[in-house]
Simulated scan of single mutants.
Amino acid sequence: MAQTPHRSTSRVLDIFDLLSTTMEGFTLTEIAQALQSPKSSILPILQTMASRNYIDLDYRTNRYTIGINLFCAGSIYHNKISINRFIDLEMQQLTRRTDEACCLGTLEGDHVLFLHRTDAPDAISCHKSPGQTELACLGAVGKCLLCDYKLDELTELFFKDGGRLPPQLNLYRAHIQMEETRITNLAYEYGEVEPGIQCVASPIRVQDRVVAALGVILPSFRVNPEKAMTAAKALPVSIQKIENILSTTDESLDEVFSLNGFKNL
């Protein structure tokens, strides 16, 4: 029998999740709005967490940030697991939030190479699985990986050595979608790669360079506006956490974002 989450404990963890997405922190009002809770309920929790040094309050800006005690606990955990394991755990959390499978891919030539996937209990089979590839200008993950490319760079990538695109694909229109992704950090597909499979994805950046992309796989038969919105809101939170941990690692990104990196998870 599933247990009902303890409300106060859940709020503490929600605050940790929220503060872990930014270095600038959030005000009481912003935290209350993000958690959809009254400030009168959130403030005592924040005061207790601050008194125990798990969060900090900057009295000049009234912004709360991660505190030294949480940093120490996180540092121990960071040394305990690999970056690949951290990404796997974050993808599992994203799967639980959306009740859908999540996929991670990187660019290999003009194709997306899928590296890792986490499945919900009722996930369906599709090609977005480790070791599989798809043409990068077709799907949401590929549009994220190519979102910084200029049109002439895309032309060189896809048409060099006599390359050809599917007749239904217009590279100029695909480039416009990639430009939108660069601005919004979200890309979408609606069955362009596989009939009945939709996807929403976000790019993962290290030092402003796209190194991978994370997507939520949405089977068309159970997609609704609420589910699509949940995925679009949850993705940036997971992306920020992954980018934060990547910014502190000494591990080789080429090794992290490889099939071998996720092989033994």
Rank of each mutant, 00 (worst) to 15 (best):
S238L: 01
D208P: 00
D148R: 14
H111V: 06
L165T: 03
P130L: 01
Y77F: 13
R11W: 06
L18A: 11
A232Y: 01
A187D: 12
V211D: 03
G191R: 00
R11Y: 07
G191H: 00
K263D: 06
H175V: 01
M1F: 13
A136E: 03
T106Q: 08
T9W: 02
R222E: 02
L154Q: 05
R60N: 15
K160F: 05
A123C: 05
L89D: 04
I176E: 15
V112L: 09
N264W: 03
K227S: 13
E251K: 07
P236N: 00
Q33H: 04
K160Q: 15
E194M: 00
F71M: 11
F159S: 01
L246V: 11
D148H: 08
T230R: 15
S82A: 11
K227D: 10
C144R: 09
K233R: 14
N185E: 03
N264K: 11
N260A: 11
H6M: 09
L43Q: 12
K128D: 00
S252I: 02
S202G: 10
I124N: 02
V200P: 02
L186W: 13
L113D: 06
T4R: 10
E108H: 04
S40W: 00
A123E: 10
L89P: 01
L19H: 01
R182G: 00
L138V: 13
A140V: 08
L151T: 12
P130H: 08
P5K: 12
G74W: 10
D110I: 02
I245M: 11
E30S: 09
L169C: 10
G67I: 04
E90W: 01
I83W: 04
N53S: 15
I183S: 09
S41G: 13
Q36M: 04
L94W: 02
G105F: 06
E24Y: 10
L186K: 12
I45Y: 02
A232D: 13
V256Y: 03
T106R: 13
I87T: 04
M229L: 10
Q240H: 08
S82G: 14
T22D: 10
C126D: 14
C199T: 13
I76L: 13
A2T: 08
S252K: 15
T61V: 07
S82T: 15
S37Y: 05
